[in-house]
Simulated scan of single mutants.
Amino acid sequence: MTRSRRAIALATIAVSMAALAGCSASAVGSTSGAACAPEDIKLIGQVRNETNPYEKSWLDGGQELAESLDLEQKRLTYAGESPKQLEQIRQELSTGNPECMVLNVLPNSDSDTTPIVKAVEEAGAHVVTQWNKPADVHPWDGYDSWIAHITYDGVDSGYQIAKAMFESMGGEGNVIALQGILATAAAKDRFAGLELALEEYPGITLLDQQAADFDRTKAFDITKTLLTKYGADVGGVWAANDDMALGALKALDAAGLAGEVKVVGIDAVPEAVQAIEDGAITATVSSDGPWQGGIGLAMGYCALTGELDVTAQPNKNREFFAKQFLVTEDNAADYLTPSIDLADFDCANVFNRVDKALG
């Protein structure tokens, strides 16, 4: 599939359906009833920061999709500051033509999702949110511009990495846990997965748990403190993401314990996957950051060009757990270089990774 072929094909569909060269309220196929010429569509990806390699891979995936469509993706980062995130979005919505704008957004916390989607709804733009939202708020609850919410089964991923670590410890020993941002569903669910695994392995004891906010530096500092407190009693470090796992690994190295203490994380960033290959980390879970970065933009693009009628989709396609994959030494080589398959973003394929509905 070439860039020009796909862009031209979708442009032809949009023109034939809507007879437009821009946006109109009379066309069909999108959540708001508007359709846009492909070249008029503005793509925006927003994450906390690009120092986190997983979040950088998200924006890289969005850029690769954008380039395949002869478009650009605007990369926004808000440094984990909720007011800044919302202000960035409002600023974008106030410029240009929001009716031809697609945002693929990582809300900073569950409570940030509602004001984000309300701002997008008011401006007439389109948005896909990922990871965080209140459990009782849904895209089909009166929102015309909220295309979908995508997340991953955090309980399952937290459980999978815990089980892999416990098995590597022979089912016996003590562990410490590094939680993420406690106001997010991802952090809560992943820790719940750890707790489930602990119930199944009575020989494993959780010595301590601290919130390191998905941040490598905080994880390094906290792990140093906990190693000082518990010393050689620590046999494993469970981390709610790879960035924290890598911070813990650095602290273990500084304490002369690298290779003696098991470490697990989530995200399958290249540095962590390489550490799995090298035997320094036991396991991680891939949610496929590059795919996440592209899929939200692809959904919006297909809706705005008239090739995807979002309102005709069942609820399970508008709010879902996407497929995820456990990465261990047995398959780490397959995950060393994150990449995307542009076929995943064809309009007929955008729901191919729906694993199960939320709840």
Rank of each mutant, 00 (worst) to 15 (best):
70 D>H: 13
113 T>N: 11
291 W>D: 01
284 T>A: 13
220 F>R: 01
195 E>Y: 05
213 D>F: 12
316 K>E: 12
6 R>E: 02
160 Q>C: 01
56 K>C: 04
284 T>L: 04
186 A>L: 09
58 W>E: 08
113 T>H: 02
135 A>V: 12
38 P>T: 03
304 L>N: 01
259 G>V: 11
77 T>S: 14
339 S>D: 15
115 P>H: 06
214 F>K: 10
335 Y>L: 03
329 E>S: 15
145 S>A: 07
341 D>S: 14
55 E>N: 12
20 L>E: 08
86 L>G: 04
124 G>M: 05
211 A>E: 09
13 I>Y: 10
85 Q>N: 13
287 S>N: 02
197 A>F: 10
305 T>C: 06
67 E>M: 14
166 F>I: 06
2 T>I: 10
81 E>R: 07
228 T>H: 11
241 N>L: 04
239 A>Q: 04
220 F>M: 04
97 N>V: 06
341 D>W: 08
92 E>T: 08
24 S>D: 10
190 R>H: 13
41 I>C: 00
151 T>R: 14
154 G>R: 12
332 A>W: 08
37 A>C: 05
315 N>Q: 12
182 L>A: 09
160 Q>I: 10
117 V>Y: 11
260 E>V: 05
113 T>D: 08
62 G>C: 11
125 A>P: 02
142 G>W: 12
118 K>N: 05
159 Y>S: 13
259 G>D: 14
48 R>F: 01
196 L>T: 12
293 G>Y: 03
356 K>Q: 09
319 E>K: 01
158 G>E: 09
213 D>A: 05
339 S>Y: 09
268 A>S: 14
354 V>H: 11
357 A>S: 15
79 A>C: 01
319 E>V: 00
12 T>H: 11
162 A>M: 11
348 A>W: 01
328 T>N: 10
19 A>T: 06
136 D>E: 11
323 K>H: 09
157 S>V: 04
129 T>Y: 00
126 H>N: 10
285 V>R: 00
24 S>K: 11
308 L>W: 07
358 L>M: 11
57 S>L: 11
165 M>H: 02
301 Y>S: 05
327 V>F: 03
33 G>E: 08
135 A>S: 12
315 N>Y: 10
31 T>R: 09
103 L>I: 07
350 V>L: 13
24 S>T: 14
25 A>S: 14
266 I>Q: 11
6 R>W: 09
349 N>D: 07
223 T>K: 03
185 A>H: 01
347 C>P: 13
358 L>Y: 05
340 I>V: 15
155 V>M: 06
355 D>Y: 13
194 L>T: 07
